[in-house]
Amino acid sequence: MKKLFTLGTLCILIYACNSNTSENKATDSGTATEQAASSPNTADYDPNRGQGKFDKVDVGSQLDAAMATEGETIANLKCASCHKYSDEKLVGPGWKGVSERRQPEWIMNFITNPDAMLDQDPALQAQLELCLVRMPNQNLTDDDARKILEFMRKNDGVK
């Protein structure tokens, strides 16, 4: 009886795995085709602004403290499970110095459009090889992304 139960359980697991795999393959191949058709040529990619709708982000010379505080709250909720605010890697890279290394447009485009950026940005692809995990799209609003950018600036010492 125990052998029959084990055999039945094994058959159910094999069936469940095979049916999910074939559904996922069909979905994945369609998604890859759609992405290839809609993605711009990598040669047209601007590494200073990234890929997305932000062409110019005016951050000013002074920190907006209220915006940075709100950005920290959002980052603690949406980002801190994968990123440390130091230079230490967690799942993703640490945030220390990111606002000094990257243009505000690039940061805003990456926060709001990570899939396209990961597909085209050579530096992000190299980072992906180190972290082994793609940044998920957190579906942040433009306003939330701007607040996170301001928190990143505060984290990097802008006053």
Rank of each mutant, 00 (worst) to 15 (best):
N41C: 01
D144L: 03
A123C: 01
L63I: 12
G71L: 05
A37W: 00
H83R: 03
D55A: 14
K96I: 02
M67D: 11
T21D: 02
N113E: 01
P122A: 01
Q127L: 13
E100Y: 02
D156A: 08
K84Y: 08
T141L: 02
R49Q: 09
R101V: 06
N155T: 10
W106E: 04
I148N: 06
G30I: 13
D144E: 15
I148K: 07
D121Y: 03
A68W: 04
K53C: 05
D44Y: 03
A145R: 05
Q62G: 10
V133H: 11
P104E: 07
K154F: 04
E150K: 12
A37H: 06
A16Q: 12
F151A: 08
E100K: 15
I107M: 03
G50N: 05
C131K: 12
M108G: 08
G30E: 12
A145T: 05
K53T: 15
K25R: 14
E70G: 12
M135E: 07
G30V: 14
L140K: 05
D55W: 09
L13S: 10
L4K: 15
M117Q: 11
S29C: 00
K78F: 02
A26T: 15
S29D: 04
W106I: 10
G94L: 04
Y45Q: 10
T141Y: 00
G97F: 07
V59H: 05
Q120P: 02
A126K: 15
Q127G: 05
A26W: 01
A16D: 06
D119Y: 00
M108N: 09
G30W: 06
L140V: 10
L132T: 14
P47C: 06
A145D: 02
C79A: 02
Y15D: 09
A116K: 14
N76G: 07
I148S: 02
N139T: 09
G92E: 05
Q103E: 06
S38E: 12
M1G: 12
P104C: 07
C11Q: 10
K3W: 00
E34Y: 04
R153E: 03
L63F: 01
V98H: 00
G50V: 13
D115M: 12
R153Y: 04
N155M: 04
